[in-house]
């Protein structure tokens, strides 16, 4: 009796062993490649020391300079890019969300196509998107805004679509039953239900967008990324340090505020 309850059925054991074997093979493959190519450059320690000493003595002079080419202006621009990019995508993603929601389309393949389209947008690298928009509107923050705005549609559309799928339609049905028109049902039953989630997801995306906006400048799309890549290429670690610190402080503050708002929303 004891044995039969302790031992799992043969098929299940076989399956577990196969999974373990597959995982093992993946790791053997990954590690052999790692150790074959792993070599520390003789200069590695020196470089690490230089980076560490530079970062521990940040270039405070860069925080605020006359003329506006300084950390605070660049951070403000990054923030602005994130705000506008999120705003644009929050508006543009609504039709895509309805397209990708299973319960809004009669045929399954329509919503599946919407979902695939949204994941295609998500996979399309933001940096390439930024390069495309730089071709259209030139170097600068506007290209970053557009790149973020379009890229975020992928994620926001997916999240909104999922929250539409999870929606409870009894309130809408009740309103319709007592004679509300389409607009009234939308406004009084559907909008109040999805709004908190909608804002919460938008804020969440905003947190991510701030981080993205911080690196978009590496290809010339405005924000803190441009001075950062210059400092990195010039090995000016003291400046890299102060920029990194600036990014950390800005992102932390935004995360804190946005997290507090999101907690109250949902």
């Amino acid at each position: 009796m004891m044995n039969t309850t302790m031992k799992k059925p043969l098929m299940k054991r076989l399956r577990n062993w196969t999974i373990a074997l597959i995982v093992l093979i993946i790791y053997v493959w990954a590690f052999t490649g790692f150790f074959k190519n792993f070599e520390l450059k003789p200069t590695a320690l020196q470089a690490a020391k230089a980076i560490f000493s530079g970062m521990s003595h940040p270039d405070w002079g860069y925080v605020s300079q006359p003329g506006g080419e300084d950390l605070l202006h660049a951070l403000l621009e990054t923030f602005n890019i994130a705000v506008l990019g999120t705003f644009i995508s929050a508006i543009l993603c609504v039709p895509f969300a309805f397209w990708a929601a299973r319960n809004m389309n009669r045929y399954r393949f329509v919503s599946s196509a919407g979902k695939i389209f949204l994941s295609a947008i998500r996979v399309f690298p933001e940096l390439i998107m930024a390069l495309l928009f730089i071709k259209a509107v030139g170097l600068g923050a506007f290209a970053g805004v557009l790149a973020l705005g379009f890229h975020s549609i992928g994620m926001l559309g997916k999240l909104f679509g999922e929250s539409i799928e999870d929606m409870d339609f009894s309130a809408a049905e009740a309103l319709r039953a007592c004679g509300a028109n389409k607009f009234q049902t939308l406004w009084f039953a559907i909008v109040p239900q999805v709004m908190p989630q909608f804002f919460s997801y938008t804020l969440y995306r905003f947190e991510i967008s701030v981080r993205s906006a911080a690196i978009l400048g590496m290809v010339g799309a405005g924000g803190i990324g441009a001075p950062l890549i210059f400092a990195l290429n010039a090995h000016r670690w003291d400046r890299v340090g102060v920029i990194l610190l600036g990014i950390i402080v800005m992102v932390s503050i935004i995360d804190l505020i946005s997290g507090a708002i999101r907690k109250r929303l949902v």
């Binding site: 602005n80 705000v83 506008l84 600068g140 923050a141 506007f142």
Partner: peptide
């Protein structure tokens, strides 16, 4: 917030649509 952000990042729809062909 959005107004000041668009002012500072130089958002211009005219520029976007007139150069869309480049893209």
């Amino acid at each position: 917030l959005i107004w000041s952000a668009s002012k500072q990042t130089g958002v211009s729809l005219v520029e976007l649509f007139s150069n869309l062909s480049n893209m």
